[in-house]
């Protein structure tokens, strides 16, 4: 038997873990969106590629750290290839066309993942082999701490980059006003390339960190990518902090919905919350009205 407080504590823990992943994906989406004006619907495939590439590299004998680093680089390169091959040539097209292009890329990448890795689910070992921590009757597995930590570190690094480096300031300028940024000599094509590489890297990291908890399959990215979108909307698409908060909030909402309502309705609850936020605060929970 488990008391109500312990139950709620447990929902909070599991919501925070998943929420951190949603947050990272949302972060990657928001940065890309603000630099390029494109919502990259292939973001989930980057998560898949990161996780599965890491697994394959470990299998061929790479030490963990090397395998993870290489996998992240591979995902970043896929991002670069996608930008050069499909986004850059179509940069003059309408937003709708660009959305469709990213959908096409995600279909092709998913097919490629199916070809390379099959339908078999894979897993990675937890980063440390420790017993679950107990807190107020609720349980937190150590890997969750790594996932939470990754989210915190990613945000910290991002802010450092934006506030203290020249390149970061350029990106921020471009996010605020693309035309003005171009007028002062910031190259939008290079920024777009950077955005896709960055989102590949962040998404791959998210994939690698969560695989010990959730396992990895060729189609894992699809739902994660979708959730990342919802998170980005909740937080307001123009705002990196908002993306993080939106992600965590979505994770917590899902866990509480599954815990307190008939669990089949969990995804419906998430969608209703998103639509309500869209209708009442279209700029996200953090945005100005």
């Amino acid at each position: 038997m488990l008391g109500t407080e312990s139950q709620y504590m447990q929902y909070l823990f599991s919501g925070l873990t998943l929420g951190s992943i949603y947050a990272l994906i949302a972060l990657a989406l928001v940065v890309t969106f603000n630099i390029t004006g494109i919502f990259n619907l292939a973001i989930g495939e980057f998560v898949t590629i990161g996780a599965l590439a890491a697994i394959s590299l470990r299998e061929v004998g790479c030490p963990n750290a090397l395998a993870y680093t290489l996998a992240v680089i591979i995902a970043g390169l896929v991002g670069v290839l996608m930008e050069r091959g499909t986004i850059n040539p179509a940069r003059k097209a309408s937003v709708l066309t660009l959305i469709i292009i990213t959908i096409g890329v995600s279909i092709a990448l998913r097919g490629a993942a199916l070809l390379i890795w099959g339908t078999h689910p894979y897993t990675l070992p937890a980063f440390v082999d420790a017993a679950p921590l107990s807190f107020l009757g609720a349980v937190l597995i150590p890997q969750s701490l790594f996932v939470l930590g990754l989210a915190v570190v990613a945000v910290a690094l991002l802010f450092t980059f934006f506030d203290f480096t020249f390149a970061g300031k350029a990106v921020r300028a471009a996010m605020m006003n693309r035309t003005a940024a171009r007028l002062v000599g910031i190259n939008p094509a290079r920024l777009s390339l950077f955005a896709f590489a960055f989102s590949g890297i962040i998404a791959a990291l998210a994939g690698i960190f969560i695989t010990p908890i959730t396992t990895a399959t060729y189609d894992m990215g699809f739902m994660l990518g979708l959730k990342g979108f919802v998170a980005a909307i909740l937080g307001g698409v123009t705002n990196a902090t908002g993306a993080i908060i939106g992600g965590v909030l979505l994770g917590v909402i899902e866990a509480f919905a599954a815990g307190t309502l008939p669990s089949g309705l969990k995804d419906a609850v998430a969608m209703v919350v998103m639509i309500v936020v869209l209708l009442t605060r279209p700029t996200g929970i953090l945005g100005q009205r």
């Binding site: 139950q7 929902y11 599991s14 908890i213 894992m220 739902m223 866990a255 599954a258 815990g259 669990s263």
Partner: peptide, 8 residues
């Protein structure tokens, strides 16, 4: 990816 809520 996580069924902790249901298992709880």
């Amino acid at each position: 990816n996580d069924m902790t809520a249901q298992v709880t």
